[in-house]
Simulated assay, not measured.
Amino acid sequence: MISAPAAALAPPDLLRIARQVLHEEAAALYGVADAVGATPDFARCVAAILGLTGRVAVTGVGKSAHIAGKIVATLNGTGTPALFMHAADALHGDLGMIQAQDFVLAISKSGDTAEIKVLVPLLRRRGVPLAALVSNADSYLAQQADYVLHAPVAREACPNNLAPTTSTTAALALGDALAVCLLEARHFSAQDFARLHPGGTLGKQLYLTVGDLSRQNQRPHVGLDAPLKEVLLEISGKRLGATAVLNAAGALAGIITDGDLRRMLGGHLTDLETVRARDILTPAPATVGIDDFAAEALARMQARNITQLVVLENERFAGFIHLHDLLREGLV
């Protein structure tokens, strides 16, 4: 039975412990970074994975298995096909998921766990390349592997030096380094990322275009000689807070917003019947291309502190995109 603490820790003690853990783990990562360059194995491992026709199978047991699952998710999301195989389950049938064209990355702090010692000879019989992500470079796993990804850890952040803390952080970070190197080597672009992450706000930022949103809106526009009443009706009727002003050739001459109207009325004009669109338009308004990403439209609105942009298609007026469109999609 776990005994209750004699007394609760004071907030200053809690902060001291938290900072100590973070400093210890950060210091360990510097050691891992140094170890990456100590041998050619990391670069050789990256090259081997790039040449695969199969998948990277990442395996481990205990906390290393959880780290393996996250590395698999990162590899899959950045263009390297991967799968997770629990080292214990591999001994009870899951080994069948490993094919001759695959590559195995085994994660183990000690490199000497019982499951790993049983699994490695079985992998060797299948003839698949094996990389070991270990803290102990002299371990059984490291000695049997084709590539050693060394993540040295002097001690865990746990005061008893028992709970996997620093070692799992080091393994996770080294797995991230591997995934990012592969990403860079594949010239994996933001568009590639978007194809694999279509859901949620992150995906929308990378695939949703201005046209996807602006085509749902009406296209308020008037001619240069439109009277004030027509301008008012166009702005209020189409509910975008503005109207484009087009010349006789249909090219964009400017924009009139509801703010322009308020400023005009505040100027104490006496003869509103004579006012025409050309008299109150703002020339050279802010625009965005119909094929630009919606996230770019948001950035332009924020930079200018405005709520709508004129949308252009082949340099011709194609409508408006409004801040409300972006809010509706959760991009703001």
Results as ranks from 00 to 15, higher is better:
residue 174 L to W: 06
residue 93 G to A: 12
residue 45 C to R: 01
residue 102 D to F: 04
residue 14 L to Y: 13
residue 244 A to P: 01
residue 72 V to P: 01
residue 214 S to E: 11
residue 126 R to W: 04
residue 182 L to T: 04
residue 259 G to F: 12
residue 193 F to H: 02
residue 310 V to L: 11
residue 238 K to P: 03
residue 59 T to W: 02
residue 318 A to S: 07
residue 313 E to T: 06
residue 108 S to R: 06
residue 224 L to T: 02
residue 242 A to D: 07
residue 176 D to W: 15
residue 80 T to Y: 08
residue 102 D to V: 08
residue 171 A to D: 06
residue 236 S to I: 02
residue 179 A to L: 14
residue 256 I to R: 02
residue 19 R to K: 05
residue 330 G to A: 13
residue 191 Q to I: 15
residue 132 A to S: 13
residue 61 V to K: 10
residue 255 I to H: 09
residue 217 N to W: 13
residue 80 T to E: 08
residue 14 L to S: 12
residue 157 A to E: 07
residue 116 I to K: 08
residue 97 M to V: 14
residue 39 T to C: 01
residue 318 A to V: 07
residue 59 T to Y: 02
residue 187 H to W: 07
residue 66 H to N: 10
residue 285 P to L: 11
residue 189 S to Y: 07
residue 247 N to D: 15
residue 19 R to M: 00
residue 119 L to M: 15
residue 236 S to K: 00
residue 50 L to N: 03
residue 210 V to F: 09
residue 119 L to E: 12
residue 272 L to W: 12
residue 28 A to Y: 04
residue 138 D to Y: 01
residue 125 R to D: 15
residue 189 S to C: 13
residue 120 V to E: 14
residue 297 A to Y: 11
residue 34 D to K: 09
residue 80 T to K: 02
residue 266 G to P: 08
residue 227 P to L: 04
residue 243 T to Y: 14
residue 189 S to L: 14
residue 72 V to E: 05
residue 268 H to Q: 15
residue 245 V to W: 00
